[in-house]
């Protein structure tokens, strides 16, 4: 039987049953010859998943490095929380602007207001929307897009 380290290994939910009889081999023999292919595959998977002989040494920081690490972490938290705050603030301001516009529109033209505030049944993002990538595509922008019968408004 293969000895598996129980330290950091979480057993897979359904441990596959080994099909054939496993010959008694010493734990040192590296090759998995003698077992059938299905068993070999399972053993390979279990080997890859387990922490057996794969863990590096526990990282021990020097006092100076530990201080640096903490300072870096604190600065990062500050940085991210500031970004978040700015984003939330911007959203808040945008909402206020929208509210002001709608309140004003309601006073000025109730007709237009009604047309502006009726929510459509479904709101869909267009399929052509592209998520930003780290580098641009070969054609950064499709300037030659033409209105045709398919994409007629």
């Amino acid at each position: 039987m293969l000895r598996l380290s129980s330290r950091n290994w979480c057993a897979p939910k359904a441990v596959a049953q080994l099909k054939g009889p496993v010959r008694q081999k010493s734990a040192r023999s590296g090759s998995r010859g003698g077992t059938n292919q299905a068993d070999q595959r399972i053993l390979a998977q279990l080997y890859a998943l387990s922490a057996h002989r794969k863990l590096p040494k526990v990282l021990k920081y020097s006092p100076e490095d530990l201080v640096k690490h903490n300072v870096i972490h604190r600065a990062w938290m500050f940085y991210k929380s500031e970004q978040r705050r700015e984003r939330e603030n911007a959203l808040k301001v945008q909402y206020e602007c929208m509210k002001e516009a709608c309140d004003d529109l309601e006073q000025v033209s109730p007709e237009l207001f009604k047309k502006a505030t009726t929510r459509p049944r479904t709101v869909r993002f267009p399929r052509e929307i592209r998520i930003p990538t780290d580098t641009p595509p070969n054609v950064p922008w499709d300037s030659s897009w033409k209105r045709s019968s398919e994409n007629k408004k």
């Binding site: 640096k68 300072v71 870096i72 604190r74 600065a75 990062w76 500050f78 940085y79």
Partner: peptide, 10 residues
């Protein structure tokens, strides 16, 4: 490097 940049941010 990260420490230097962190100090600048702080």
């Amino acid at each position: 490097d990260a420490y230097g940049a962190a100090q600048a941010v702080l």
